[in-house]
Design a protein around this nucleic acid. Structure first.
Lengths: 204, 204
DNA sequence: CGTACTATTTATAAAAT
DNA sequence: TATTTTATAAATAGTAC
């Protein structure tokens, strides 16, 4: 599509394919997010790279969209869009639905999706929350790495007959995604990947 | 995006929204198909319009992709898919409760609260999601500031006889400190902004 | 509503870093 | 390899049928 128009067929060159995958994947997810926001559509997008890595996005929750899809496919009743009447009809249901609504909005805002209408103070608050979240996530990640490294060192020091060593390859991990479903993500058991290869391995 | 750049927020005008939905939906599906073909990726895309119409696409079979997704997400949370009984049950209340649970957990994780048990991949995804969120929040904040400044300038230029100035006029801050490092967190190079395309600033 | 027609904004193939 | 830059191809907002 650019410098030179390309044919839409599988890219042979592995490197080029990986690069294209990265860029187009990001573009695709961005478009999905935008469509959801602009047109108030409910979307679920699942992508498995050829190496088995999972990337997904859902405007609400993966489970909900998939379920709705299943129902629709089966020509069943829409049970995901409780009508106002139904909500009023069943107090418990109404309360739960309200909760879902509230949380869905909160989730979307944390993902930076439904920011319109928020004031400066609210934006700052969101920012704070996000920074706090990132901070803790990074901390946890670091701890995992350190634990692993410690375990590795111990192992190497102990049983040292096999001169096998590392494979230092950790570089910046960058693989946009946009997970969000049941807090799901992938604890992928994907084939070895070049991308952000986890340092988490179970060698030994 | 075109004649005039538009904000990514729900389109109010119903007709315009419908038109945009039509066009963007097709664009999104096209992109999904292309990505699948070019990079040999397995993709599933489900879109429900705000009026409830379903549109979907899957590079292989929807069921297969969803199942694969579930497997990947499985080792993450138990309260994933609504149980079979629930699906058959058609109980709005029960499903809503389940959704509340799912969302509550996701929210906590985004806040960095329920991280134990998550693998490296999940942590990285959370990190990416949070970074995307912060990026968009900051962008929105910046836009607000710029609008305010523009409005102020206009006002000052216009009614210059009335010494009525107006509110505060903070400048865009921006303070990201998000590392995106795999191993131990590293320094935080504060380039400029975050996400992609920001540049612009129309406002006449 | 779904298309068709531009004027512009985006996305992105290539290449560089 | 991931990101950035550059030069073009695509997508698409606004508008008219």
């Amino acid at each position: 599509m650019v410098r030179q128009r390309i044919e839409i067929k599988k890219i042979d060159n592995v490197t080029a394919r990986q690069v294209t995958f990265s860029k187009r994947r990001r573009g695709l997810f961005k478009k999905a997010r935008e469509l959801s926001t602009l047109c108030d559509a409910e979307i679920a997008l699942i992508v498995f790279s050829s190496t088995g890595r999972l990337f997904d996005y859902s405007s609400s929750s993966m489970g909900q969209v998939i379920e709705r899809h299943n129902n629709q496919a089966a020509n069943l009743v829409q049970l995901n869009q409780p009508s106002l009447e139904l909500q009023l009809d069943n107090s418990t249901s109404a309360i739960a639905s309200k909760e879902v609504e509230v949380r869905t909005l909160e989730l979307r805002r944390l993902r930076g999706e439904e920011l319109h209408g928020l004031g400066l103070e609210e934006l700052k608050k969101l920012e704070k929350t996000l920074e706090g979240g990132i901070s803790r996530v990074l901390k946890t990640k670091t701890e995992m790495f350190e634990k692993e490294i410690a375990a590795l060192k111990r192992k190497m020091q102990m049983g040292s007959d096999i001169g096998q060593t590392h494979e230092r390859g950790q570089s910046s991990d960058q693989s946009i995604t946009t997970t969000t479903n049941n807090g799901s993500s992938a604890a992928a058991p994907p084939p070895q990947d070049y991308d952000s290869s986890d340092t988490s391995l179970k060698l030994g």
